[in-house]
Write a protein that binds this DNA or RNA. Structure first.
Length: 634
RNA sequence: GCUGUUAUAGCUCAGCAGGCAGAGCACUUCCUUGGUAAGGAAGAGGUCAGCAGUUCGAAUCUGCUUAACAGCUCCA
């Protein structure tokens, strides 16, 4: 016998080997109608799973992340079965659950497109209606290879597994898949589903391999949830920074410059506010500011290692028959600034910030609004220090990053990226640099995960990732520890001992790229920026032409106080002016008519309708100034 | 770069299956002078992304190029 305790506190003894479904029926019968699987010691399983020892068990439903994964994984098998029925020659690769939905990678001659979906969905509907049970079984390697002999990708996967690995299969009717699971007990619960896209994806994620067809889908236990999901996607589309950038006249990208964004007057206000704030915070944190050229001689890039490791992404040019390159990173210029004169240990740490415009030749298919462009401004800084400074400097940096993200209300995920394949330096240097970053991360208490092989070619890094409106994450902040550049550029400082020493260098960004950050910011606030960032902070709305002069007076008073104000003198009804200001997401509308003109007041309407009332002009200015100074998030 | 989809007015889109290019919003002018999300009328605006081809005739069919979107790869 074994002892099972449930999350609801109930417990009982069971025969060893009783499965999760049987246990659940005894201990939590009321949950079993919606049960999809179970979780034991952090691992999740299907209801099939036999339990063999004492355990604490949680029953999983669609509400749980793991429950969704089980549901979607089975949905992917249902789709694969339908595709097998319609395209018997299809070769199947992998078909997992993802953060929202599932996909299956398939290799076949027929090319699928969105018009193919209706037939596949109809076939899936039959499979769901038949409520086919899923059966789990294990095979020896030779039996397994015999079973999948017509499926080359499955053969390759089996051959790549270690000899002793248990090979499990799931069978549902006429479809059998080599698969670790877990899965639902049958196909019936997948009541509502939709195929969403078909795209190309390289086998095993390697661009050198064959490209397979990846069919994406999403599924839910009922139609209402499916509808709600697509409504949520519609809402996300309304927040898309590319759309809002055009609508709010902030920025855009034209055919004339793919990946090279334009900023319009409204966008420049936003951008300058961010840069002003950045400068202020960095002054307080002991930074200097520099600016280095965007075109520099080829030899510099050879020296820095960019020529060997980054050449494909660099734009080249010639000046007077000599070779130059447009900078893809700011560091080499920063090195020259450090080297311009001898440095004493007393000067360290030196923190040199640069809002540096870099150009990188990104692949055309990778471009994405402001999030992925070919020229962008990094809020870069290079910190030069002795080894004893390193821990404190990294910790201070982590605090500075947190301060920035907290101000905007961003959630962020932290990763520690380690040595990539194509990189410079010795193993010893990399280990040392990585452990210094990791030590600081541990001390900071921030949760993080390791991202193996994703470091820069010159050193490991701590990355800060922010989410866009669809939940896609983008790297923004980064803290990189570099032991290569100081060596390559022979940087040194004179120590207290009179000897020359090599400084350690940190590269870092907070916004990452101002462009990307503005993209994230736009989606995060759905274009309704906090007051201090708004291109237009207040719109004066005269009710009729008779109030034009008073409106002008209000406009001028606010302008004198440094508030970004406009007035709408168009020959339109007040309602129309309010509507337009509201659509432009202007935070405050100051309506003025006879009453206000007489009393010297304004009638304040807030875009979020949370604040308002009739105020003296002076009181209105004071309130706006306070909110601007507080950088209040409402 | 790769796979799939797409490209019609500043924006959002219609134009069924080849036969004289359309709507709403925005813009200009006129009328209207109004109290918290759209007052009315008229006007102007397009080499249907570009280049070839098929056809008596192409926005519509075919090919190539360019750009965008989704994903892969890559990255801030």
């Amino acid at each position: 016998m074994m002892h099972i305790k449930l999350a609801n506190g109930r417990k009982a003894d069971f025969e060893v080997g009783a499965n999760i479904e049987e246990i659940g029926k005894v201990l939590a019968p009321e949950q079993m109608a919606n049960a999809l699987g179970g979780k034991i010691a952090g691992e999740y399983f299907g209801l099939h799973h036999p339990v063999r020892e004492d355990a604490e068990l949680a029953i999983l439903s669609f509400e749980d992340k793991e429950g969704k994964a089980i549901f979607w994984h089975t949905s992917s098998h249902i789709m694969a079965q339908a595709i097998q029925h319609l395209y018997p020659k299809a070769k199947f690769a992998i078909g997992p659950a993802i953060e929202a939905g599932f996909y299956y990678d398939i290799d076949m001659e027929d090319t699928l497109n969105p018009d193919s979906f209706a037939a596949i969905e109809a076939e899936m509907k039959k499979i769901v209606a038949a409520n086919i049970p899923l059966e789990r079984f294990s095979l020896s390697r030779s039996e397994a290879l015999e079973l999948v002999k017509d499926q080359p990708y499955k053969v390759e996967m089996i051959n790549d597994l270690p000899e002793e690995e248990k090979l499990t299969f799931y069978r549902q009717g006429d479809y059998t898949d080599f698969c670790a699971g877990p899965h639902l007990l049958s196909t019936g619960p997948v009541k509502a589903f939709k195929l969403t896209a078909v795209t190309g994806a390289y086998w095993r994620g390697d661009a050198k391999n064959r490209m397979l067809q990846r069919v994406y889908g999403i599924s839910f236990p009922n139609e209402e949830m499916l509808t709600a999901h697509f409504e949520m996607l519609e809402e996300a589309k309304r927040r898309d920074h590319r759309k809002l950038g055009r609508e709010l006249d902030l920025f855009d990208i034209f055919d004339e410059g793919p990946g090279f964004p334009f900023f319009f007057p409204n966008g420049m206000v936003l951008r300058n506010q961010l840069e002003n704030f950045w400068r202020e915070e960095h002054r307080k944190a002991g930074y200097q500011e520099i600016k280095t050229p965007i075109i520099l001689r080829r030899e510099l890039w050879e020296n820095s290692g960019h020529w060997d490791h980054y050449r494909d992404n660099m734009y080249m040019t010639q000046i007077d028959n000599e070779n130059f390159a447009v900078k893809p990173m700011n560091c080499p210029g920063g090195m020259l600034v450090f080297k311009r004169r001898p440095t004493s240990y007393k000067d360290l740490p030196i923190r040199a910030g640069e809002l540096g415009l870099v150009h990188r030749h990104e692949l055309s298919g990778a471009l994405h609004g402001l999030m992925r462009v070919r020229n962008f401004t990094q809020d870069d800084a290079h910190l030069f220090m002795a080894e004893e400074h390193v821990q404190k400097e990294i910790l201070d940096l982590i605090e500075l990053e947190k301060k920035f993200y907290k101000l905007f209300g961003f959630e962020f995920a932290v990763e520690l990226s380690t040595r990539p394949e194509n990189s410079m330096g010795t193993d010893e240097q990399w280990e040392m640099a990585t452990s210094m970053l990791q030590k600081a991360l541990e001390a900071s208490g921030l949760p993080y995960k390791i991202n193996p092989g994703d470091g820069a070619f010159y050193g490991p890094k701590i990355d800060f990732h922010l989410k866009d409106s669809l939940g896609r994450t983008w790297q923004c902040g980064t803290i990189q520890l570099d032991m290569q550049m100081p060596e390559r550029f022979e940087l040194e400082y004179t120590g207290a001992d009179g000897e020359k020493h090599r400084p350690i260098m940190l590269h870092r960004t907070i916004f990452g790229s101002i462009e990307r950050f503005i993209g994230i910011l736009t989606e995060h606030f759905a274009g309704a920026f906090p007051l201090w960032l708004c291109p237009v902070q207040a719109m004066v709305i005269p009710i009729s032409d008779a109030h034009r002069d008073y409106a002008k007076k209000v406009e001028e008073e606010l302008q004198k106080a440094g508030i970004r104000v406009e007035a709408d003198y168009r020959n339109e009804k007040m309602n129309a002016k309010i509507r337009d200001a509201q659509l432009k997401k202007i935070p405050y509308m100051l309506v003025v008519g006879d009453k206000e003109a007489e009393a010297g007041t304004v009638s304040v309407r807030a875009r979020n309708e949370a604040r308002g009332g009739v105020k003296d002009i002076a009181a209105c200015i004071a309130d706006l100034e306070k909110e601007i100074a507080d950088k209040d998030l409402f």
